[in-house]
């Protein structure tokens, strides 16, 4: 890809061609104790060509949101409301057969655990050719194999190893294979759910480099789900912070990291181990993660919030722009009548 193209890419991010738009999405899981609101009225635009980092504590609904984008929520979960606009179509309205064609071909997903995400009984090449021929039935087995070899080579694996079984590869290699699978049909959008959590630091860095290269080369849009702020800071263009199934903050990496608005985001950043900081006074956020069975009233973060105001427990703040392109759902930045700040 030329410098120009990269520049064009950047500009499309800036101008914000929206590739995938989530509107007011809610997902619930039916459990014995009641309904768990894992994703609660989330709206989010993913711009073409960007890497969007989606962060939040474990259990806040990130994976659920990712799966919902693929329309892959299975019982006991269900999407209770919302629209998923992708390439001019609301995915909530397409048939299951059409959806299956979109999955893999135009939307790809990479899961957290590379050790368990590949079929232990199939060779790597079979994974790839199967994916290719499923979506492009006209491609011959041999041609599919050629493409698979190219991809594997591009991702930095030895081509001879294509006939090996998954258990013969290391975690980092398998995660590359997972990416290869997502790229086999040149998906427009790849949702990577904690792709590096299971990898060690060095492999993680290599993997992230690769991801950035591929983004440019394959014209990819990537949603990077993680609870690792460091990863986001390294690769993402924009960051979305989730809390208790809701959007807390959204903005460019610089905006969110240097000018954090939401108190939860601030806490999250202070909890990141920092080399310059003395390890001993690492900040630990107070309170327990929210109970999604009984999400706190008003702003769900108010029981843990250092800046809590009376209104916070009464009414839910809107997910509104604080500065252009930078949104936060917090009463600190929104007009409200009377109660006043402390």
């Amino acid at each position: 890809m030329t410098q120009d193209a990269i520049a064009a890419d950047r500009s499309s991010v800036a101008t914000g061609d929206v590739l995938y738009s989530i509107r007011d999405l809610s997902v619930e899981y039916g459990t014995r104790a009641g309904e768990v609101a894992a994703v609660d009225r989330v709206s989010l635009d993913i711009r073409k060509g960007e890497i969007l980092g989606l962060v939040g504590e474990s259990g806040c609904g990130k994976s659920t949101l990712g799966k919902a984008m693929m329309r892959m929520i299975s019982p006991p979960g269900r999407i209770t409301q919302g629209e998923l606009w992708f390439a001019g179509e609301d995915l909530m309205t397409v048939s299951e057969a059409q959806m299956r064609e979109i999955r893999g071909a135009r939307l790809g997903m990479v899961f957290q655990d590379p050790m368990t995400s590949l079929n232990p009984l199939s060779k790597i090449v079979d994974h790839l050719t199967e994916t290719i021929t499923t979506h492009e039935p006209s491609v011959s087995e041999a041609a599919a194999r050629d493409r698979a070899e190219q991809l594997i080579g591009r991702l930095g694996l030895r081509v001879e190893r294509i006939d090996d079984y998954p258990h013969q590869f290391s975690g980092g290699m398998r995660q590359r294979i997972m990416i290869a699978l997502a790229l086999a049909l040149r998906a427009d959008l790849v949702i990577a759910d904690e792709p590096t959590t299971a990898l060690d630091v060095i492999v993680e860095a290599q993997f992230l480099d690769l991801l950035r290269e591929l983004r440019a080369e394959f014209d990819l849009t990537i949603i990077m789900i993680t609870h690792n702020i460091g990863v986001v800071a390294e690769v993402a263009d924009r960051v979305a912070v989730m809390y208790a199934g809701r959007m807390a903050e959204l903005g460019s990496v610089d905006e969110v990291f240097l000018d954090t608005k939401h108190p939860y985001g601030q806490g999250l950043l202070r909890a990141v181990p920092n080399i310059e900081l003395d390890g001993s006074d690492l900040y630990q956020m107070e309170g327990a993660p929210p109970n999604l069975l009984h999400t706190p009233s008003g702003c769900p973060f108010h029981p843990r919030c250092p800046h809590v105001m009376p209104i916070c427990s009464e009414r839910e703040p809107a997910f509104a722009e604080v500065t252009p392109g930078h949104r936060a759902s917090c009463w600190l930045f929104q007009e409200h009548d009377g109660e006043g700040e402390r």
Binding site: M72, R103, T116, L118, E130, T131, L181
Partner: peptide, 17 residues
């Protein structure tokens, strides 16, 4: 319920397969 089944579905592999 295994991950490889879920990720096969995410690749659009037919349910029968």
């Amino acid at each position: 319920q295994e991950d490889y089944v879920i990720s096969a579905r995410a690749r659009g592999i037919r349910e029968r397969v």
